[in-house]
């Protein structure tokens, strides 16, 4: 644990990237269906890894397996260099405090106010004064861009985008080293989504955060992800910097990055001339 601590803020991490998440030969399935099939994946310290894939391809399943919420059929998962299966109870508990998780649907505790939700991890795991907890909760709330009056609202009284933000605030509650985000920007307005990206970039810079982000948002991929990994049919079909992904000729990746939306972002769209719709030629 000591050596991990020292590398946290050392700039040396850039030279020999330390692997925070190492997945090898992972297989996960439900009944007859194999969702994740023999997957290898590395996430390095201090990077933002964007994880993409079509709907129902197993992104959430992979994330939940890494978190230990789903059982794996085969393979190994190492977090911070330790295999979580062989970890004693006590250390696993510590491991769990070093990450923050944003679930796809927010998963806020419905009977607690937003503030209580954010304070929950602190209250359970840290011994700090009430005043400090209140201040930290409000600070986190402001960081994620929620108005102060949202603090005393119940999750059912929030809009969809606000739920996302509140859930992020809770994920950030203990200032984790590793952040799991499941589609953080879906359901946010474009301005909010851009702010969200910026916030994650800032946190990553300041806290040396490692981020595992499942996303469909091409903007996020371009603006904050250091690396991208793509899953299709249960396999990681590509992983690497954005350029590698753009150069890939896997049909799904090609369609993803060079489809209408993708092209719009890469600027390639402007090179096309005949955008107007023409009726298909009549064939006899």
């Amino acid at each position: 644990m000591n050596e991990l601590r020292t590398t946290t803020n050392g700039a040396g991490a850039k030279h020999a990237p330390e692997t925070v998440i190492r997945v090898r030969g992972l297989v996960v399935g439900f009944g007859d269906q194999v969702v994740v099939d023999d997957v290898d994946l590395d996430v390095y310290r201090g990077e933002v890894l964007g994880f993409v894939g079509g709907s129902g391809q197993g992104k959430t399943v992979l994330m939940r397996t890494i978190l230990g919420l789903l059982d794996k059929r085969a393979g190994s998962i190492e977090l911070f260099g330790k295999n979580r299966d062989s970890l004693p109870e006590e250390e696993r508990h510590w491991l769990e405090q070093r990450w923050g998780v944003l679930f796809q649907n927010g998963a806020l505790f419905s009977s607690q106010t937003v503030k209580q939700n954010i304070q929950m991890p602190m209250r359970e795991n840290r011994d700090v004064s009430h005043r400090f907890m209140d201040e930290l909760a409000m600070l986190k709330l402001e960081l994620v861009g929620l108005p102060a009056d949202a603090a005393d609202k119940l999750p059912s009284e929030l809009s969809g985008g606000m739920v996302k933000r509140a859930a992020l605030a809770r994920a950030l509650s203990l200032d984790p080293e590793l952040l799991f985000l499941d589609e953080p920007t879906s359901g946010l307005d474009p301005i909010g989504a851009a702010e969200f990206d910026e916030l994650i970039a800032t946190l990553q810079k300041t806290l040396g955060l490692t981020v595992f982000m499942v996303t469909h948002d091409l903007d996020s991929l371009y603006s904050i992800c250091d690396r991208v990994a793509a899953i299709a049919d249960g396999k990681v079909i590509a992983a690497g910097a954005m350029e590698t992904m753009l150069a890939s000729d896997h049909p799904w990746l090609h369609a993803y990055f060079h489809g209408v939306r993708g092209r719009r972002l890469t600027g390639a769209l402007s090179q096309r001339k005949d955008e107007t719709w023409k009726p298909a030629p009549v064939t006899r």
Partner: peptide, 18 residues
């Protein structure tokens, strides 16, 4: 530099007491 960013991000503001 990275601490400076953080200190800026968490600058003091007064929150209305509940």
């Amino acid at each position: 530099p990275e601490h400076n960013l953080l200190l800026e991000e968490a600058h003091f503001r007064r929150f209305a007491p509940p």
